[in-house]
Simulated assay, not measured.
Amino acid sequence: MRAKGTEPSEVSGMVLGLLAVIWFIGVPLCLWQALATAFTGDAELDRGGTNAWLAAAAVIFTVAPVLATGICVFTARVVRAWIFGLVATACVLFVLASLYTEARQAELRRPPPPLPSGYCAEYSGGDSDCPGG
């Protein structure tokens, strides 16, 4: 039997339920809006809107389980804390892997740096047009 002040409150249970609803409905809704924004109108103008919806989905995807884990730890719900903690860890790792992949792809698509001014390349088998050569 627990002491009067140590039992998990009903409010924290309702907050956990609200976080679950936000997580299960908010992430797909944000992804749907990102797809709708990407396929309507001008692609260049809508790229910012698409990125904003994707960022919102990533934030909801990671923050809701982290908050739920914190609430479960604070209210001594051990099993739920472990479950939400594992889900939060998986979500954070997934988002970090996606960010790393996107950064790596952006690095590969970046054009090479320009050659310094006054650069002259000499080629074998021909005359040198470079100054001093």
Rank of each mutant, 00 (worst) to 15 (best):
V21D: 07
L67N: 02
V73Q: 09
S124V: 04
G133R: 06
G5K: 05
E122S: 07
A90W: 06
S117N: 06
V78P: 01
L99K: 06
N51R: 15
A90T: 08
E7T: 13
A34P: 09
G5R: 01
A97N: 10
D42N: 05
C130H: 07
A20D: 04
T75A: 12
L67A: 12
T69F: 08
I60P: 11
L108E: 14
S9M: 03
I71D: 03
P8A: 14
L96P: 04
G13P: 00
L35T: 14
L99D: 05
R109H: 09
D127Q: 10
G132D: 05
G85Y: 04
A76P: 02
A55L: 14
E107Q: 12
E107F: 00
R110H: 09
R47L: 15
A76Q: 11
I22Q: 09
T75R: 09
E7R: 14
E7K: 12
F84C: 06
V79D: 13
P114C: 11
G133L: 09
G5H: 06
V95A: 03
R109Q: 14
A64G: 01
L35R: 15
L93T: 05
C130K: 04
T69E: 04
F94W: 09
T89L: 14
W53L: 02
A121G: 02
V78E: 08
C130T: 03
P65R: 07
A20L: 10
